[in-house]
Amino acid sequence: MMLYLAQTTGEPTGGLAGWAIDVIDALGGLGIALLTVLDSVLFGALPIDVLLPLIGYTASQGAINIGVAIVCAAAGVVVGSLVQYTLGARLGRDRARALLVKLPGIKPESVDRAEAWFARHSTKAVLFGRMLPVVRPLISIPAGVERMALPKFVVLTAIGSLIWNGMLLGSGYLLGENWHQVVDIMGYVPYALLGALAVGVPLFLRRRNRRRKNAATAIVETNTSG
């Protein structure tokens, strides 16, 4: 089914893309999970952001249930991210970085960016990093290096993956034969997300500091009056 759709919609069927399509065509939901596991383990080497909208389109044609597709994709990301997390925890920062920069397609600045993103945003980095193409393939490594609490890491990874993969799959499902437009549309989402964080995080911190200051003032006034 997917191979036929790829041919009729003009999607290339050779190389990694063609192999991925064959896997999903043969294994269904398990194939989706396998591909997202591999994409995570191989640091974003698969064209997953193109494949998921195509899978969403096939779901609209009855090839697979869209809910199953979303859950399977997120489950695969969680498993693959746990592999990365373990790698970061076992190797530590220096050895993990030395290994990553030797891999094809991974630039030292990308590794540094993911590390800086995690250092700055911590838990938010794991959640929102799943929606940022440059950070997403690598964010689990610094989480492992810093030994982020594993339950929190799993939950945040699952939520972020459900949101991002759900958007890709759901958009392909809704757009139907125009599923390929999703790639262009979703390309603007990371910028919108970064803009929202740039505005929202300072506001959140300002309000939190204001509440703490008000609470401290109230305590002082209470102690003084008492």
Results as ranks from 00 to 15, higher is better:
L5E: 08
D39F: 10
N165H: 14
R211Y: 07
M167T: 13
F43E: 07
L162F: 08
Y4N: 10
I21G: 06
L3C: 02
L175A: 10
I106R: 04
I141E: 05
W179M: 10
V37W: 05
D94K: 10
G62C: 01
G166E: 06
L100M: 12
A149L: 00
L100A: 00
G195I: 11
E221I: 10
Q61F: 03
V126L: 15
A158P: 00
G226F: 12
A20L: 03
N165I: 00
Q7G: 02
T217G: 02
A119V: 07
A63Q: 09
S161D: 10
P142M: 02
R90M: 14
K124F: 11
G62F: 01
K152S: 14
N178H: 13
P202W: 02
A6T: 01
V78I: 13
D184I: 11
Y57K: 03
K107F: 04
A98F: 06
M148V: 03
Y173V: 01
F43H: 09
L138G: 07
W179K: 12
I48P: 01
P190I: 13
A149W: 15
E177R: 12
L82G: 12
A143L: 08
V101D: 02
L42K: 04
G166K: 10
P142T: 00
I70N: 06
L82H: 08
K107S: 12
P202L: 04
G200W: 14
D94L: 11
L138D: 04
D184M: 12
S171L: 15
S140P: 06
R113T: 13
V189R: 05
P142Y: 01
V50T: 15
L103I: 14
A215F: 05
F43T: 13
G56W: 03
L16M: 06
D39M: 08
Y188P: 06
A17H: 04
S171P: 00
V23C: 00
I163H: 05
T58L: 15
